[in-house]
Design a binder for these strands. Structure first.
Length: 194
DNA sequence: CGTGTTTGACCCGCGC
DNA sequence: GCGCGGGTCAAACACG
């Protein structure tokens, strides 16, 4: 199900989609986020910061439904940790990882059910940031979705926490949604779906 | 009626 | 201390 290609990219089939990451931390991030085991590591140990986001290549989806992209570690973990009640300077226990995807739709279906609990205007951006929580009982995974102001075709999704359960939607549903989306937009090269 | 969204208020940390 | 910005809460609302 998982494979590291010769070019260092990490490909994994999570049931709903194929995702490609470029570093071991990225693959672990996605493994954590999707609650999967058995990942290989050691390709590229260097983390990529959200501040470098402008220099990163953008994720894309080809006509076979293969999503390619990079995930980014969030340097803002300490601040979030402090807000969660931890002491200043204490390392955050819950990693946050961001994924850039090129998509016309803001909501990328990753197979989990999310409940929106907030939306905020972002400074220096004309697009708001949306906040989502996993609706599964006992699972406190969160994600933020924001469209980049300098590239309106790019959606930045930040995941925080680890799912304590399996994907809640079936592959059949995903395929149904995918075919529906492709029917709507008629251009699968610019539509990203998980 | 259950579930999810909207949106203004609120809280907190940080910088000045 | 104060203002700003990010993040969260919760009441009201919409929808199937």
């Amino acid at each position: 199900m998982n494979d590291i290609r010769s070019d260092g990219y990490f490909t994994s089939n999570f049931g709903l989609s194929n995702f490609t990451c470029s570093s071991s931390s990225s693959s672990q991030a996605y493994a954590d986020f999707l609650n999967h085991d058995g990942f290989k590591h050691g390709v590229d140990p260097s983390p990529i910061l959200v501040s470098d986001i402008g220099a990163l290549p953008t994720a894309d989806v080809d006509c076979a439904g293969i999503l390619k992209g990079k995930c980014i570690e969030d340097p803002n973990e300490g601040r979030k940790a402090a807000k969660d009640g931890k002491r200043k300077g204490e390392k955050a226990r819950r990693p946050r990882h961001a994924f850039r995807t090129r998509s016309r739709v803001d909501i990328l279906d990753d197979g989990y059910r999310w409940r929106k609990y907030g939306q905020k205007a972002v400074k220096n951006s004309k697009f708001p940031r949306s906040y989502y929580r996993c609706t599964h009982q006992g699972c406190n995974v969160k994600k933020q979705v924001q469209r980049l102001s300098d590239d309106e075709g790019v959606v930045l999704t930040t995941y925080e926490g680890i799912h304590s359960h399996h994907i809640q939607k079936s592959t059949d549903n995903f395929e149904h949604i995918l075919s529906h989306q492709l029917h709507i937009y008629g251009n699968c090269t610019t539509t990203a779906l998980f």
